[in-house]
């Protein structure tokens, strides 16, 4: 386990999160009435396209952005670990020095810091690279270092902004192992991602679209909540909302009516997200051109 503060996965509370939070930057509304609970001992994922408001939501939770409306529940600063999208590590410091700085910043004593850094270097397989400059690490290694920096002080809440974006599949798997270990040790983990397969592994998922909450629940709940039916076809069909996937066409039927020659299929989370977005757009009043 990475977080070894002795908290057990079973002592869970839904402590942290946002209640109807709205964030405005001038005339731009980055988040609109978003609520989200981040439970201890679980991974919560925020998924959405670029500019959906994922980073703003994370920054609100860690206290880097003040909400215009709504309430934020977060632990005191020392109990929050944050990994920003830019990784937040110092490229001109070594792996060891980056960790030592974070440990000192969070007030860890020298002895505790030393053993904690050793433990994290082991867990992240960075022991051999401990004297290497962070700027010279591969993308995956640097992300692992950033994660280690974010959790060096064993926080209760860990917030990760797209921790696996741009890293190779092996490093992604390793990062996920580390994140899963964190949750298993009782830490509340909130992460933003653009990958549906990652969101699928999370305990609960918030889907954001242009700053608005589109869906919230377990991946299964989100799949089930999508209105209408999903069909599969070999070719494109006019007048239906369809998208191409794995060489075939998926067709969303809001009223369940089947297109000719189509086969009814069970949507997975990726289909569910597309359908939720289509349903949302269909519900919006058309703007005259």
């Amino acid at each position: 386990m990475i977080a070894s503060r002795g908290r057990q996965p079973e002592d869970r509370t839904t402590g942290w999160g946002l209640d109807r939070v709205t964030v405005r930057f001038g005339r731009l509304t980055a988040l609109e009435r978003v609520s989200l609970g981040v439970g201890a001992g679980a991974v919560t994922a925020v998924i959405g396209a670029d500019a959906a408001g994922k980073t703003t939501l994370l920054r609100v939770l860690v206290g880097a952005v003040r909400p215009s409306e709504g309430r934020v529940r977060r632990p005191e600063k020392r109990q929050v670990g944050y990994m920003s999208a830019g990784s937040g590590t110092y490229g001109d410091l070594t792996v060891d020095e980056n960790l030592a700085f974070a440990a000192r910043a969070y007030g860890l004593s020298r002895g505790v810091a030393r053993s904690r850094i050793g433990e994290l270097l082991d867990r992240t397989d960075l022991m051999a690279a401990r004297r290497r400059l962070a700027g010279l690490l591969s993308g995956g290694m640097r992300q692992k270092l950033a994660l280690a920096v974010a959790i060096v002080h064993e926080p209760e809440l860990v917030v990760l902004d797209e921790p696996t974006t741009g890293v190779d599949p092996v490093s992604r798997a390793e990062l996920w192992r580390l994140i899963a270990e964190l949750a298993a040790a009782g830490t509340a983990v909130l992460m933003a991602t653009t990958y549906v397969d990652e969101a699928e592994r999370a305990g609960s998922v918030l889907v954001l679209l242009r700053g608005r909450p589109l869906a919230l629940g377990t991946p299964e709940e989100i799949r089930r909540a999508v209105p209408g039916e999903l069909y599969e076809l070999g070719g494109r069909i006019d007048d239906w909302r369809a998208w191409r996937r794995a060489g075939r066409w998926r067709v969303w039927s809001p009223d369940g009516r089947a297109p000719e020659g189509a086969r009814l299929i069970e949507p997975d989370l990726e289909d569910g997200l597309v359908m939720a977005q289509l349903a949302y757009e269909a519900s919006q009043p058309e703007v005259a051109a």
Binding site: F25, G26, L28, A30, A51, G53, T55, R59, A64, V65
Partner: peptide
């Protein structure tokens, strides 16, 4: 300090990351 009510400069930063 937490952003959200800052100047245009800070807003543009926040917008970029929104």
């Amino acid at each position: 300090a937490p952003s959200g009510t800052g100047s245009r400069h800070r807003r543009s930063e926040a917008e970029a990351s929104a």
